[in-house]
């Protein structure tokens, strides 16, 4: 499996669904039953992934515009988030 970097592209597998829940969200893989609870920031990142058609760099750029944090820190957090979801089958790198 290729390492996920800023220039990677990801997609949401067909079996994964996203449900919003009072500012948070739940991601669920219908095939495996694995689910993740997302806090408000995670929910926003997920929305950006969908909005930016899976371009991690575009998501990062949008986060830099939206969040009051160092770009390096945002990159680190974003990549950790995407790698964790990828490892759980909730996102796929391609």
């Amino acid at each position: 499996m290729a390492a996920i970097m800023l220039d990677s592209l990801v997609r949401v597998p067909e079996d994964v669904i996203f449900r919003e829940l009072d500012g948070e969200a739940v991601l669920l893989n219908l095939h495996t039953g694995i689910y993740f609870g997302l806090d408000a920031v995670g929910t926003r990142i997920w929305q950006l992934v969908e909005l930016q058609h899976g371009s991690i760099r575009a998501v990062w750029q949008a986060m830099v515009d939206e969040f009051d944090a160092q770009p390096e820190r945002l990159e680190q957090d974003l990549l950790a988030f995407v790698r964790e979801l990828n490892g759980s089958g909730l996102l796929t790198a391609h």
Binding site: I17, R19, L21, D22, E24, V26, L28, L30, G33, Y35, G37
Partner: peptide
């Protein structure tokens, strides 16, 4: 919150 997350996931299945 965990109760609701689990309920949402189970309901989706």
């Amino acid at each position: 919150r965990q109760t609701l997350r689990q309920a949402v996931a189970v309901e989706a299945l």
